[in-house]
């Protein structure tokens, strides 16, 4: 009983971390069709923003939930103005440009913070459940991703800004005809996507520690999750994160963490072979 609860927490944590890792990319790639290969580096910068802010005496939760998303969002804004906006609709070119950006960010982070591992302690203590100890921070990550998904849904579905953003992504000339500036809407959407990446990097930083090349560990998982999710933004994100989270945690517990990672990749191959349009290309059609 205790054990099944602990394993349930671990599985939920696996799913939640996939949601977190992929949320920013879901916006930037899923909505805007920009292949952002610097996504991992946006996360890495979120982590460094947090550690730097904590080092300056800022409360760790403020640093993670406010400062890191803002900092990375602003960096995203600059990147969008300087590079990305010239490349909308040119998939291959954005790929090349953002890959170059990722190298630049790794180089800058190495120059500023050094090519060395840094980290901060997790701010939430563990607690006992029956005969088992549970990492309290896992709950925090689960809660953050639930709130994140609900907030994304509420904004996209319930607010006028969300409606305009979705409309612009589908038919930007129509949005322009109705008096909205697609340029500014794209800019704001990219800001939000970057901020989400920064948040993910910040929240995961205390758990895993940081090097300038940390981003590389996330990029593949993020793309796999978003692509397998398919056309629906939130339904796709949640359904593919759940499937992959379940598969990888199952094999992690049954065999080992390495096999868990392997199983995730194999599951992705099988899934995309059977459902080339992604999960929401077949199920939950038309959902957000």
């Amino acid at each position: 009983m205790d054990l099944s609860f602990v394993i349930l927490v671990e599985v939920l944590y696996g799913v939640a971390s996939l949601v977190l890792i992929s949320a920013g990319l879901a916006v930037v790639f899923g909505m805007m069709k920009v292949i952002n290969l610097a996504h991992g580096e946006f996360m890495m910068m979120g982590g460094y923003a947090t550690i730097t802010a904590v080092g300056l005496g800022v409360n760790v939760f403020v640093a993670m939930l406010v400062i890191a998303p803002l900092v990375v969002g602003l960096i995203g804004l600059i990147v969008e103005r300087l590079v990305i906006r010239h490349l909308y609709g040119r998939l291959v070119d954005t790929m090349l440009a953002t890959w170059g950006l990722s190298l630049v960010f790794i180089g800058l982070a190495t120059m500023i913070f050094g090519n060395t591992t840094t980290g901060i302690s997790t701010p939430i203590p563990g607690f006992a459940f029956g005969g088992y100890q549970v990492n309290g921070y896992n709950f925090f990550i689960i809660i953050v991703s639930i709130v994140l998904v609900i907030a994304m849904y509420a904004v996209l579905r319930g607010t006028r800004a969300g409606l305009i953003a979705r409309g612009t992504m589908q038919r930007s000339n129509m949005a322009a005809a109705l008096g909205y500036s697609p340029d500014r809407i794209y800019m704001m959407t990219f800001f939000c996507g970057s901020a989400l990446s920064g948040l993910a990097g910040a929240v995961l930083a205390p758990l895993v520690g940081l090097v300038p090349t940390s981003g590389g560990a996330y990029i593949a998982k993020a793309f796999i999750t978003v692509i397998s999710g398919g056309p629906s933004l939130i339904a796709g994100l949640v359904s593919s994160a759940t499937s992959f989270g379940l598969v990888s945690q199952f094999f992690t517990f049954a065999i080992s963490p390495v096999i868990g990672e392997v199983a995730l990749l194999i599951a992705a191959v099988v899934l995309l072979r059977t459902m080339p349009q992604g999960i929401t290309g077949r199920f939950f059609k038309g959902k957000l």
């Binding site: 980290g119 302690s121 997790t122 563990g126 100890q133 549970v134 990492n135 309290g136 895993v208 520690g209």
Partner: peptide
């Protein structure tokens, strides 16, 4: 071994296992 594995000792302590 190495910087990445150092996380184990952090997470071990964060889970409250250190005293058990």
């Amino acid at each position: 071994v190495g910087g990445a594995h150092l996380s184990f000792f952090r997470q071990w302590s964060a889970a409250g296992m250190k005293d058990k």
